[in-house]
Design a protein around this nucleic acid. Structure first.
Lengths: 120, 120
DNA sequence: CACAACATTAGAGTATAGTCTATAGTTGAT
DNA sequence: ATCAACTATAGACTATACTCTAATGTTGTG
């Protein structure tokens, strides 16, 4: 599919898709047999990747971190061991985020309590 | 205390403290009786606020959101009802973040599984 | 009283992650 | 053949959140 269809399927603008492509997160390929244009074609894996990118951004992963995860999954440049190391590293960082959110929840509940009991 | 002591107590640089002050998150006060300088003085509440800011940034709250929470706690400009509304809103957003992180954990565990079983 | 260590303000610079504009060429329906 | 709708590339612009520099003035210890 071309970039417009990809954009419609993922809800990500063509501009942002091109930004992600330049950042190395996804990669379209040009059809060598067509000489009249240099349009990029994208496959279902790219749709999958973009959906993942959206989710990963929500949890606060940076473009760089998302790139590492995508490479650990879709790329052949790492050994099995290296891939698992990267993924485990991200799991640890998710656990950390989880812990911080729980702490923040407690803190805000305390704030609420203070408001209710006129301690602020 | 002056800004340098505040910086040492919180581990936040004086530059960043001034940035937070300009952003309206904290507020020092000048001693009117001293005419030779215009140094700002900070109290323990400011230390508390800066510690909170560090934690709140970790969970992904923006400066603007952090400002709302601080105002809901330390400020007199809101009614009790408004304060609770702001805090409840942040609690909802924390629940949302938590949900997204749990989903991402599942996703990455799936990736790991795929790596282990040579499905990628 | 020198001078290192502190304070202030204004504004410039950086990194991240987009977002938009301009230019130019291509495709497909009428 | 025309024309709207698409495509590519380069580069400018924006927002957020710092981070640093420069210029200038103040304080406190030897």
């Amino acid at each position: 599919m071309l970039i417009n269809e990809l954009s419609k399927k993922t809800g990500i603008t063509t501009h942002t898709i091109r930004f992600y492509e330049k950042s190395g997160l996804i990669e379209g390929k040009q059809d060598e047999s067509v000489k009249s244009n240099n349009y990029f074609h994208y496959d279902e894996i790219t749709v999958e990747k973009l959906d993942f990118i959206s989710d990963a951004k929500s949890v606060g992963f940076t473009i760089k971190e998302i790139g590492q995860i995508i490479d650990a999954w879709y790329n052949k440049k790492y050994t099995k061991k290296q891939k698992l190391e990267i993924l485990d590293d991200k799991l640890i960082s998710l656990e950390q985020k989880m812990k911080e959110i729980k702490e923040m929840k407690k803190q805000i509940l305390q704030f609420k309590d203070d408001v209710v009991n006129d301690r602020c």
